[in-house]
Structures are given as C-alpha cells and as structure tokens.
Simulated assay, not measured.
Amino acid sequence: MTNTAVVAHAADDLRIEDVGEPIAAADQAIVEVAYGGVCGSDLHYWRHGAAGASILREPMVLGHELSGTVVASAADGSGPAVGTRVAVHPLTARGDGETPYPEDRPNLAPASTYLGSAMHLPHTQGGFADRVALPTRMLHPLPPGLGLRRAALAEPAAVAWHAVERAGDVTGRRVAVIGSGPIGLLAASVARHHGAAEVVTTDLHPRPREIAEQLGARTIDARETDAIAALHVDVVIESSGTVPGLAAAVSAARRGGTVVLVGLQRAGDVPAPVATAITRELTLTGSFRFGAEFAEVIAALADGSLAVDPVVTHTFAAAEALEAFTAAGEASVSAKVLLAFAGAGAEEQA
C-alpha cells in the first residue's frame, strides 16, 4: 500500500511520491487525511523554493490545512480514538528561552513550528499525504454534522477569525476587507458571523467579488480608489498583503478607526500613508496565525453559522497536485483549492 504525498524539492520541483508509512511517536496518532487546502505558503514553496524567510533546504511534504480520520490511536492513550474525524491545528508553540512573548498568545511564541514549514532544519513535514503521524494535541474531534470537506477550512477560517477579533467587538460596526482571496473572503464571513452591520470587500477580479457577494458582502472593484476612500468604515481588514492594499486600507478607515494587517507584506521596508494614519488616529494592529480560536471556529462550522462553502472553488485528487497548485495560483478564477487524499473516499461513501 502506497502513501502518496505532495513533496516540494525546490523551486518549480513539486513531486507526487510514496513517502512510506508514517511511524508514530508515543503521543502521536496516525491520521488518514481526507482533504488538504492549498495555502499561499504552499504556492511560494512550489514557485520560489521559499516562503518569506523559510527556505527549502531539503525535501518537504507540504500542507497544514487538514482534515481526516484517526486510523491508529496514540500509544500513550492520549487523544481521540480510532474512527474519530478530526481537524488539525498545525502549530506547536515553543519559546526560545530568550525572546519574551505573552504566554496567552501561543501564536507569537518565537521558536514555534508549523506543519509544512521550512523555517527550521530539519523542516517540519506537512500533512499532504494519505496518512500522517500527528501529535494528539493537534487533533480536534469534529462535532456531528461537520463533514471532512468543510472541516478542511478550519485552519484558514481560524486565521480570519483571529484577524477580525484583533479589531475587538465588531457588533453593529461597518467592516471593509481589502483583498478577496481565501483569507479575505473568510474574514468577510467571520465579520458577518460576529454581527457586523455591513461588510464591504474589494478585489481586482470579478470572480472573488462574486463569491464575496454570495457570503453577503457588498463589493467594490479595487481600482475604484475614490469609492474605497469614501467608505469611512469602523474596521478594515487588510488581507491582500500588497502595498496598494495597505494604502487602500488606511484610506478606507474612518477617523479613530482600526486597521488589522493580516495579509503578509514583503520583507523589509514597505511604503505606507503613515501621515494619514496619524492624523486620523487610526489603530494599526498586526494579526498572525491564531490560537485558542480553533475550537470556536469548528463549532461555528458545525452549526452552519459561519458560511464557508462558496469559498471552495476547486477540488483535485492528490495525484493532480500540480494542476491544483496551478489553479490555486490563478486568483482570477479560484479561491480555496482542496486536495482530496485517501480519506476523502470514505466520506464520499458515507
């Protein structure tokens, strides 16, 4: 029996190969992966051999947006039993013994590892494989009614959830989302879930704007800078990770408003309209990954109060990973692209 995995070897060198059966440590369970979502970092490893400062130095299984079923429980008795369907929280929080960080915000721990990340050597292997060994602390059982396909969006939805909550209570407030990629779309949905009075999203392409409208947002073409500047919203979520997007986010915020920066900007200095931020007394706050929100996201996915289904635009078999990555890189036609692994078949038959 083969264990098909999606492995990045270098820039433009993505391979579908058998990585052998996983060997579990005492605190690890074997999970048969059903679905994996292709993230922007996965695309960077494929296209550039690096994601920011994380540079590929050895072959690495990609993937950190995962759902699946436990097929062998942990030897130490921890974690879910065989047959439990789970979503995966891919962070292992770890301090470095020197750099201070708030202990109640594990996403900021400076020496943390993340599934499918080349930050450290050896790399932290990801979960794009038919079967993987994962620490039981990462495994969150799915409530009844939450399927594995929707559960694969728990990780990116948690990123969006964290970003919205960095702005505080958005109940009754007007929210704009700059950039309608998967995280932007999910942030729009989270804002509506959290009681925003109005959600407006922007994007350059019609297809993402159509999806945003399905999620209940009003949309603006990102090139309509005057219309964006006229929004004067209470909260802006900048999810494009671009210099024009950052400028648009500042321009869209009302005086005294809040701008949350979740789209990762390029390394180094980035031009920004700081004078406007100062004279409007804007609060600019960063947002990185997520922490304890994961359980809340799973509950909202299970009860249907967090709408995510329109965000999934494509599903490919794992053997078609190159085609899936190509589709995921086309922002004008796709949002979230899923890979289906061995465990997906069991759900389809259920």
Rank of each mutant, 00 (worst) to 15 (best):
D13C: 08
A158F: 00
A252G: 07
A129R: 03
Q125E: 12
T84K: 06
G77Y: 04
P208N: 02
A187D: 08
V82F: 00
K336T: 00
D18P: 06
N3P: 14
S189I: 01
P22Y: 12
I55K: 14
H48M: 11
V274C: 08
V82W: 01
A248N: 11
P100G: 06
P90C: 05
G172A: 13
S78T: 15
A163D: 02
Q265K: 06
P310V: 12
A277S: 11
V190N: 04
L43F: 07
Y114N: 09
A252L: 02
A196S: 11
G83V: 13
L56T: 06
A8K: 09
G304H: 07
V312R: 00
L115I: 10
E155V: 04
G329T: 10
P182T: 14
A346C: 03
T242G: 05
D27S: 14
L56F: 11
G116R: 04
P90I: 04
R105H: 10
G172K: 12
Y101L: 07
T285L: 11
A50K: 15
L134Q: 03
T92H: 09
L121I: 09
T285M: 06
D203G: 03
I228R: 02
V199M: 05
L142G: 03
V175D: 09
A344N: 03
G179N: 11
S287W: 03
I16W: 07
L91E: 05
H205N: 14
A295N: 10
A87C: 06
S54A: 15
